[in-house]
Nucleic acid binder design. Structure first.
Lengths: 155, 155
DNA sequence: TCATTTTATATCGTATGCGATGTATATGTC
DNA sequence: GACATATACATCGCATACGATATAAAATGA
């Protein structure tokens, strides 16, 4: 009596994603820890290196993280001197997050160390291309699904 | 001055995986919450539905979770009456986790509810096949990388 | 204008997820 | 059998991640 394939642990897409996310975090920790950074904290910096001085809401959207998750991360980045927080003068509700000199100065080094680590595994690059595109599709789908849920109740 | 493509937030494989994992957890919560289950708790049940009465160590390996993460989850499952814990008679260090009657009885219902939810999104099924295989490759790679790290220091 | 509603953050409680450490039990070696 | 080592689990501290709630400021509208 074999069970439905889709519901065996090893065959589940969601489980594969779950495991990959955990493994990635572990891998990145090796590089980021010496800088005193965690993976989510690094993501915030990554967003700001692309475009500095974002409002919290913009970072929240870029990373798909709620304020409840993001705010503690931002506070830690402030404490550790990576970013600053200032109220927007145009909209006093909004808070602008900006990179410090330290954060700007360290971008290259962190990026190099990460590339070094990843280079140890050429296969990662090979796999990368197609998978990335598919995952982006998946993410759009999941996001839609999650946003649809409220309406869903009324069907 | 465009930056290296690989290091733009949106283009990063790890970020795509990270987001997908978060979205999946949200999606599953909708189905699992009425049962009083979280996604990791459900994963434990999934493992046990495949094969009951596993030792903690075995579950830890199946889910790629350390004892520090797994133990609190198991304790909650015990508290809520989904599984039992008993010391192995053969090896008094080992703890055997077994499904309760409630857990066995609810498997079908939970599985049905999950399939219902997923069925709302046919596209998920279409994407699934290839992506799953690729993610499994990715996971093997990442796991190897993570296990290699210790030796890595001596190169 | 002024009450209502929306929006941007902040805070809180619960549940992971991890590395580090502690403890009891097996195991291997002599 | 004694003892060093390895293994299985437990516990702790830190850092997310989420939903729910709170608060202040902006936008809306009668």
């Amino acid at each position: 009596m074999k069970k439905i394939k889709a519901f065996l642990l090893e065959d589940q897409l969601c489980f594969a994603v779950y495991k990959a996310a955990n493994q990635f975090t572990k891998l990145y920790r090796q590089v980021l820890e010496p800088f005193g950074l965690t993976y989510p904290q690094y993501l915030v910096l990554l967003a700001l290196w692309e475009q500095d001085s974002l409002v919290v809401k913009q970072i929240s959207e870029k990373l798909s993280l709620g304020i409840g998750t993001l705010n503690p991360i931002l506070n830690k980045l402030v404490d550790k001197g990576w970013v600053t927080k200032e109220t927007s003068s145009k909209d006093k509700r909004a808070v602008i997050i900006s990179l410090t000199e330290k954060a700007r100065a360290t971008e290259t080094l962190i990026t190099e160390k990460l590339m070094e680590k990843m280079a140890h595994c050429d296969a990662l690059t090979v796999i990368d291309g197609d998978l990335r595109a598919q995952l982006q599709n998946l993410n759009e789908l999941l996001t839609q699904l999650n946003n649809m849920e409220v309406k869903d109740e009324y069907l």
